[in-house]
């Protein structure tokens, strides 16, 4: 499965681009960034914007390639099997810490070389603006008064926002009727169309509907308030320290040399510090948040332990 130089010879002939395979100076050719989702979603946008901001620093193109499927497990396994020369890297979402617990693939953060983390997205609880629940406490009180009466749309069993709903049930003692959808967008539509009562999705996914007045946000599942929805209280303030954010980082196959990881991390750090990145995160309702190699590794492993310990328990909770 070694890549022959044919593609480079051909590209070189056609475009008169000199391509010496000088391995002394990394990087000397384009870097492939494997995205675990289809084009158009948040993962794709984060990857493409980061790639376009970082490639100037590395002087080689960073090209996104899409390998969607199995909550990202296909892409994680694919990248892990590539040569660890730093020319194939991947976008690491929170699912990299989850897929093993779900049994989709035997891979986790400790099986790859983590590079850095660039953003975080907290979930938010939303209801229809005409619903009787004005606050998080109203909502929880109603859910406790009549267990199972409130229909909670989720973005798919096993998705990160579904876990947050389960954490909410566990943390508050409320009980909902769960209505699974194939993603956040249809779940939010079902609340906007009043087919279900509430949903949990990323702040960035609900913000446009909240601004337009078609959804009301009751709480953000985080310690600190979200920049784009500063008026919405957090679960921690309300006395329920729950919440599992989604995040975006980058990783490569296990065994990448420390220098190459550092070079990539520096490039992404430079990209992270641009105003474009800050602006992009604000537009999409994400929180720009940087963790270097060590901090990201510690964080990802802690996340994996969290999901490993909670998923069996939460799944039991849902199917009594």
């Amino acid at each position: 499965m070694t890549a022959p130089p044919l593609r480079w010879i051909l590209a070189g002939c056609l475009f008169a681009v000199g391509c010496s395979g000088n391995e002394e100076s990394y990087p000397s050719k384009e870097i492939k960034l494997i995205v675990q989702a289809s084009p158009g979603g948040a993962s794709d946008m984060v990857s493409r914007v980061m790639a376009s901001l970082a490639e100037g620093h590395l002087n080689v193109p960073i090209v996104c390639e899409y390998k969607p499927g199995a909550s990202g497990a296909l892409a994680f396994s694919f990248v892990a099997r590539r040569p660890s020369d730093g020319y194939t890297i991947g976008h690491a979402p929170v699912e990299i810490a989850i897929v093993r617990s779900l049994g989709y693939a035997d891979i986790g953060p400790s099986d790859v070389s983590l590079i850095c983390l660039v953003s975080k997205t907290a979930p938010a609880l939303v209801v229809h603006p005409d619903s009787p629940w004005q606050s998080f406490d109203d909502f929880i009180a109603a859910a406790k008064a009549e267990p199972g009466n409130i229909v909670m749309a989720n973005s798919g069993i096993g998705s990160i926002w579904h876990f947050n709903i389960l954490l909410l049930e566990q943390g508050t003692g409320a009980r909902f009727t769960h209505l699974p959808y194939g993603g956040s967008a249809p779940a939010l539509v079902s609340v906007i169309g009043r087919h279900s009562d509430a949903a949990v999705a990323a702040v960035g996914e609900v913000i446009s509907h909240v601004r337009a007045g078609s959804l009301r946000a009751l709480a953000v599942f985080d310690a600190g308030r979200a920049g784009v929805m500063a008026e919405v209280p957090t679960t921690h303030e309300l006395g329920y320290p729950i919440g599992a954010p989604a995040w975006s980082g980058f990783y490569g196959p296990a065994g990448m040399s420390a220098e190459r990881v550092a070079m990539l991390a520096d490039a992404f750090k430079t990209a992270f510090e641009t105003t474009e990145w800050a602006e992009f995160c604000r537009e999409l309702g994400m929180e720009a948040h940087y963790l270097g190699k060590e901090d990201f590794a510690a964080f990802a492993l802690e996340q994996q332990r969290f999901f490993e310990s909670r998923i069996p328990q939460l799944v039991r909770l849902e199917n009594p």
Binding site: A185, L188, S208, R211
Partner: peptide, 22 residues
């Protein structure tokens, strides 16, 4: 409604958001 009907319109929404149009 700001709801994507298919994959193409999902990308269009993303493109509009990046240009600051909701």
């Amino acid at each position: 409604l700001g709801i994507p009907g298919d994959a193409v319109s999902a990308i269009l929404i993303g493109a509009l958001l990046i240009h600051g149009i909701q």
